[in-house]
């Protein structure tokens, strides 16, 4: 017993060393940075130890804006993208002909570069001196007033960001869910029909529980991914996100390190640890719920 335990640790050793070096050490380092007050990166000196960096970050309006943006993004895009992916996957698995074609089409955004997709969204939404963008043309067609989605009101920019995020994450979710649906034995559906269940009841009582492990996997990774969003915002609104009011937490951290107003690794570290705490809490809650609900 004891011997085999030793053996197991021995096998795990390389990956433990790797993890320790590239994950635990940096994390500790970040923690240390975040506690050093008045750190000067040029002279590598600091004036004291304490929680001042956290206090500063938590009072910084740019950070608060970034937190608000991130939370809105998470709360809207995770349910919408997962629900939409589920609907599309159900549709895909119920059509016979052309299924492969549709699957490929839905998968295309996944293999397309984020910035290239951003460019397409610009064409769709951006107002220029020559055109109002395709979406505004459509709005105009139905008699609405044109909106500047890229440099206009906050809700319009948020809408585009959410739309874009959903669009980017959808293919992966569809891929996972179509294969999850395909792996459900058809006999369960037949049995449920003979048992007199309507289409919706079959969906709610059979289909969803059967694929619930995959659904929860997508929700958890979706939360984590959305909390760490950054490049999507850059692709749409450029690098000066604070000015645009569309910064995210990761964007804020980046700006604190390398941005035009950057050079503050202590503030960046404090913000990073706050993000870590948020993601950690949410993931623990998610796992806790899934323990109770998911039928593995």
């Amino acid at each position: 017993m004891k011997k085999s335990g030793l053996k197991a640790w021995l096998y795990l050793l390389p990956s433990l060393i790797f993890l320790g070096f590239f994950m635990v050490y940096p994390l500790v380092d970040v923690l240390v940075y975040s506690l050093e007050e008045g750190y000067n990166s040029a002279s590598q000196t600091f004036s004291g130890v304490g929680l001042y960096n956290y206090a500063y970050v938590l009072r910084d309006p740019y950070f608060l804006q970034a937190v608000k943006n991130t939370f809105i993004l998470v709360i809207i895009t995770v349910p919408v993208s997962t629900g939409l992916a589920l609907l599309i996957s159900l549709g895909l698995s119920s059509i016979g002909k052309l299924r492969e074609l549709f699957r490929t089409i839905y998968f295309l955004p996944y293999v397309t570069n984020t910035l290239a997709v951003g460019l397409v969204f610009m064409i769709l939404f951006k107002k220029t001196p020559y055109t109002d963008g395709m979406v505004n043309m459509l709005i105009g067609l139905f008699g609405g007033k044109s909106v500047d989605f890229i440099e206009g009101p906050y809700w319009a920019k948020m809408f585009v960001l959410c739309f874009y995020t959903v669009w980017i994450v959808l293919p992966f979710k569809i891929l996972i869910l179509t294969s999850a649906l395909a792996s459900v034995n058809k006999d369960y559906y037949s049995a449920a029909r003979v048992d007199g269940a309507s289409g919706f009841r079959i969906f709610a009582r059979i289909t969803v529980p059967m694929i619930s492990p995959m659904l929860f996997y997508l929700i958890i990774t979706g939360f984590i991914g959305a909390f760490k969003a950054y490049s999507d915002s850059v692709a749409l609104f450029g690098t000066n996100l604070n000015a645009a009011g569309m910064n995210t937490i990761v964007g804020y951290i980046y700006d604190m390190l390398y941005g035009d107003s950057g050079g503050y690794p202590s503030y960046a570290s404090a913000a990073a640890l706050i993000l870590f705490a948020i993601v950690f809490t949410i993931t623990v809650i998610n796992l806790f719920i899934s323990r109770k609900k998911v039928n593995a």
Partner: peptide
């Protein structure tokens, strides 16, 4: 209907 493999809902 009782199926060849029973098809009891596993969850």
């Amino acid at each position: 209907l009782v199926f060849q493999n029973y098809a009891l809902y596993p969850h």
